[in-house]
Design a protein around this nucleic acid. Structure first.
Lengths: 217, 217
DNA sequence: AAAATCAAGAACTAAAATAGAACAAATTTC
DNA sequence: GAAATTTGTTCTATTTTAGTTCTTGATTTT
């Protein structure tokens, strides 16, 4: 059958033919396929003609016509497409949606992973992630609104100032700003109407840090 | 296939033939295509004849017949393309990232579409979308922070209360809450430190409405 | 290592686009 | 049916764009 270049060229000619109703010139083809010289195009066109995929009028400009298209793609093309598809899948990750964060249950408990959301790939660099629906307005001043989807990175350590998912007494999980001080942990809401909660360090487990917000209007 | 001029002429002949039932004269064609001499038309017609797109009766006036038109597309190819496109759309959409929204340039102007971001598929139901980086804190109280990525749905109409990309005097684009009243348009920031801007309706163009927010920590 | 293949580049040739003018053939008008 | 007017054809010339061919050097195959 066709080589990869032949196939690509044929598809390109066909595309231009259909989109614009005109034939591409040798220079245009050369650029489209990524060659640096027209002579290569000439060779490819000759072989496409020999194989009866295109017809051309010799010594006429832009006088190419696609007669038929191959039934199968060359192997090389298939492989390339596979790679591209993989890259595409990588570009958006599937993340489990655990539930609502103000609900007061430990995250683990409701981790049934039945629902998934897809997020942009660049938001989930590496590591384990999960998503939570925000309920309530306690983080409003940090631009985190009721109904937002929070993207959480699983980790049990966090630094001061980071926004974390904190599980208190193994019962209540909330999203708050973290502040550690003298064996105590402050969970700071970002809303003047809420009060800072202070606990012994042992009572609080970090279940992840905020890594992204997704909101739909 | 054809050169651009040949294609243009063919389409023009076809159009006139259909509309008026008679062929255009050389002079009419020359004017339609923008030439200053009929000889060029003669050359074009000859080449169209050579390529089997038209037939003519020599030495007869207005006696052109269009035999066929370019842009054929085998059905099998059509279907395959459709499938492939659907598969691509199902995972996660690629959206052009136009630039920063407070920068004061009309969106169209910087629409080079060179950068793309990927967004979760379910955020871009249908319609045209683009993305903007938020600059500044004028929408802070709506939970839209400096550095956020705003997902904008292209449309030139919007209702009161919606957050829109508004272009003022074709020069300044901002993201604000919209309020229309008596031929005036209020652009309302969501931050007490900023003032409401009021303009004549003619001066303001809507370039899209806010459809999502993506934020990375 | 030799042969075959492929890509790049340059040189060359040909075609397309454009214009202007002269002329011939068709068509319309009176 | 002759005159007037459209309309099509041909020729010349120039500029730009495009196609062909050949040489050379690199890469791959055998």
């Amino acid at each position: 059958m066709l080589t990869q270049k032949q196939y690509n060229l044929l598809m390109y000619i066909n595309k231009i033919n259909r989109e614009k109703g005109t034939s591409p010139s040798f220079d245009e083809m050369k650029n489209a396929i990524g060659l640096k010289s027209k002579s290569g195009i000439h060779a490819l066109i000759t072989s496409l003609e020999e194989r009866n995929f295109i017809r051309k009028i010799p010594h006429k400009a832009r006088a190419l016509e696609v007669i038929r298209l191959p039934r199968f793609k060359p192997l090389a093309v298939l492989e390339e497409e596979k790679k591209r598809e993989e890259a595409l899948h990588n570009s958006s990750a599937q993340i489990p949606l655990y539930g609502k964060i103000a609900a007061g249950t430990p995250i683990e408990a409701l981790a049934d992973e039945s629902e998934f959301i897809s997020v942009p790939f660049d938001m989930v660099a590496c590591g384990k992630y999960y998503a939570l629906k925000i309920e309530g307005d306690s983080m409003m001043e940090a631009g985190i609104l009721n109904g937002d989807t929070a993207l959480i990175k699983k980790q049990d350590q966090a630094d001061n100032g980071q926004i974390v998912v904190a599980l208190v007494d193994n019962t209540t999980a909330t999203l708050k700003k973290l502040q550690k001080k003298d064996g105590l942990i402050n969970l700071i809401p970002c809303n003047k109407n809420y009060e800072i909660q202070t606990y012994d360090a042992q009572r609080v487990k970090i279940q992840g840090i905020l890594s992204g917000i997704i909101r739909q209007y």
